[in-house]
């Protein structure tokens, strides 16, 4: 009993140290999205390559797809761009770009220079659709299933290991689900 009394501060310190260690490893910039397992917010937006044409969430029904939020002014988008090109090459999924608060000529030039991983990009000029998707740090990537439900969200640039470890296994699993 006496020993326990002297051990108590040490135990308390150990508990505190564990909590602080976890706190150090957490990323405060990463906010859990309340949109996971909810239907992807609807949009019908002009396509970047051909603004006369519009693309909507409903058009994507029955497909597993990726919605990647990007902009030509976004520096970290440049960083993740080669990874998206690589993912596009594998043809594992349909990749739709949400061109967020950008200018069409600048965006088109960006894709021409760096390559275009998107099956289509839609233009969210005033950022309203971005707000609907809870976008706060471009780039962001959403994985949406055949029923139009958001299953995963990645905030910030996709990292080199993420494609193999997170996206491809998830996409494969979602492809097997019934529409």
């Amino acid at each position: 009993m006496l020993k326990l009394k002297y051990l108590l501060p040490l135990l308390l310190f150990a508990v505190l140290a564990v909590f602080l260690a976890i706190g150090l490893k957490l990323n405060p910039k990463e906010i859990p999205s309340p949109l996971i397992d909810k239907p992807a917010p609807a949009f019908s937006l002009p396509v970047l390559a051909n603004p006369e044409q519009r693309l909507s969430v409903a058009d994507m029904k029955g497909r597993v797809w990726l919605l990647n939020v990007w902009a030509s002014w976004c520096v970290s988008c440049r960083q993740e761009h080669p990874l998206l090109l690589e993912l596009a090459k594998r043809k594992a999924t349909t990749i739709i770009g949400l061109n967020y608060k950008d200018e069409a000529p600048a965006a088109a030039q960006w894709l021409q220079q760096l390559g275009n991983p998107y099956d289509a990009s839609v233009m969210d000029l005033d950022g309203r659709i971005g707000i609907d998707y809870g976008v706060y740090g471009v780039p962001e990537t959403f994985v949406i299933d055949k029923r139009g439900i958001i299953r995963y969200k990645h905030t910030g640039p996709v990292q080199p290991g993420d494609i193999e470890q997170i996206f491809l296994p998830l996409l494969q699993r979602l492809q097997q689900e019934a529409a």
């Binding site: 906010i31 859990p32 309340p34 949109l35 707000i131 998707y133 809870g134 706060y136």
Partner: peptide
């Protein structure tokens, strides 16, 4: 706001 960005 909370539907889109969470309680945070």
């Amino acid at each position: 706001m909370t539907q889109r960005y969470g309680d945070f």
